[in-house]
Design a protein around this nucleic acid. Structure first.
Lengths: 190, 190
DNA sequence: CATCTAATTAGATTATAATCTAATTAGATT
DNA sequence: AATCTAATTAGATTATAATCTAATTAGATG
C-alpha cells in the first residue's frame, strides 16, 4: 500500500455526501436517481461522487435495462479502512527500523577491537546506533557533571564535545545548569 | 458514532503530510521540530497539522522541559478507522432497516381481515412493505401481461393502476412492450 | 432511425484548506 | 526580570473541490 493511495482513499470518503452514499449502498444496490432523491441532491452531483467512489474501487456498477445500479465493494472498503492502522509496517521497515543484527554489524564496522570508535558515521541511522551504544554507560535518574560525561565518552572517542552535543540534539540527554541527565527512553530519537 | 465525526476523521487523515506524521509517530513520540525536519516542512505547518490531529484525538502531547513530544493514540485511531465499515449499523436501524416484526405490524394495520388493502400508505417505508407483500404472487423469470398484473393486484386493491406504477417506480418490475417482468430481488428498492 | 430515460460532462460559482513568512506566546533557565 | 527555545497564531497566497444549471452522451425500445 503506497501512501498516495491511502491519502486518496481518505480524501474520497472524507465527504459527507459520499459517506451517506456508502451508507445507502450498504443496504443494497441503488440507481443514481434513487440516490439523488434520497439525499436531496441532483443527479450530476451524485454522478460526480459515484465517479470518485468508483475510482478507488469501493463502488462498482451493473446495468439493468436502462438504469445503472451501483453496488458497494465492502471487502475492498474494509481493506482500505484498515490500512491506516498498519501504516508503515512495510515501508518503514526498509528505511528506518533496524534489526538487532543490523545494529551488531554497524557496531562491528565502526568500533575497533578495543571498543574505540574509528569515525562517527555521517548517516543518521548509523550515528544513532553508535550514540545509543555509548550511552549505555549512563544510568537513568542520575545527574552527571560535564567532566563525567566527557570522561565516559573519551573511552570511545576523543572528540567528546561533538558526541556530547549529539546526545543533546537527539534528545538522549538534557543539560541543566551544567549538569547532564539521561532522558526517559521513550523520548530518544531512536 | 455520528456521521459528521466520521467525515471529519477521514478529512483529517486524508492529507499526505498528516499521514506521514502518523507514520512517524507510530515509531514513538517526536517533538515538533524533529517532525518538521524529517518531513522538510516548517514548524508552523507541523503545528497546524498537529492541531488537527489533536482535535480528533489521535495525537496527544507530553511536555518534557522545553520541548513537547507528540504521541499517537493508536487505540482511538483504530476505532475511528474501523467505524466506516460499521457505518449505519446503529443509525440506519432506526431510520430505514425494518424488522420482520415491524413488517408484520404494518401489514396488520393496512390489510383488513380478508387480506384486502384499506389504503396505500403514503410513507415510503410502509408503502414498500405493502408493495413487497403484493408482489409475492409473482414468479421471477416469467413475463406477465398487463391484464394478469391487474387481476393479481385487484385481489388486494381496486386501484391497480397506481400500484402497477409503483412497482415500476420502485424497480420491482420492468415493463417491456406491454409485458411485465419481475426484477431480480437485489434491484428492488426495499 | 426516432425517441425515451438515465447518466455524464462542461463550465461557473463558491467554499475550503495547505503552506509559507513574520509576529507572538508559553515555559524553562539564569 | 531577562533570555532562550520551541510552539503557536495571524494573515496572505494558492490550489482544490462540492455543487449547481445547461448541454451532451449512451443504451434501450418502438
Amino acid at each position: 500500500m503506497q501512501l498516495d493511495r491511502l491519502v486518496n482513499f481518505h480524501k474520497t470518503v472524507g465527504d459527507k455526501t459520499r459517506l451517506r452514499i456508502i451508507g445507502l449502498l450498504k443496504e443494497g444496490p441503488l440507481h443514481g436517481q434513487a440516490i439523488a432523491g434520497k439525499l436531496g441532491l441532483t443527479p450530476p452531483t451524485i454522478s460526480h461522487h459515484l465517479t470518485k467512489l468508483k475510482e478507488i474501487n469501493i463502488v462498482y456498477q451493473r446495468r439493468h435495462k436502462n438504469t445503472i445500479y451501483y453496488n458497494l465493494n465492502e471487502k475492498h472498503l474494509a481493506f482500505l479502512a484498515e490500512s491506516i492502522i498498519k501504516l508503515g509496517d512495510e515501508d518503514m521497515n526498509e528505511a528506518f527500523k533496524v534489526s538487532e543484527e543490523e545494529k551488531h554489524n554497524i557496531l562491528k564496522n565502526f568500533l575497533d577491537s578495543d571498543g574505540k570508535l574509528k569515525t562517527l558515521p555521517s548517516q543518521l541511522k548509523k550515528r544513532l546506533i553508535i550514540l545509543e551504544h555509548i550511552l549505555k554507560g549512563f544510568e537513568i535518574g542520575r545527574t552527571y557533571s560535564e567532566l563525567e560525561i566527557n570522561q565516559h565518552i573519551k573511552k570511545f572517542h576523543d572528540d567528546f564535545a561533538t558526541i556530547r552535543r549529539e546526545f543533546i540534539n537527539n534528545h538522549f540527554m538534557t543539560r541543566n545548569r551544567g549538569y547532564y541527565e539521561l532522558n526517559p527512553r521513550e523520548l530518544w530519537r531512536i
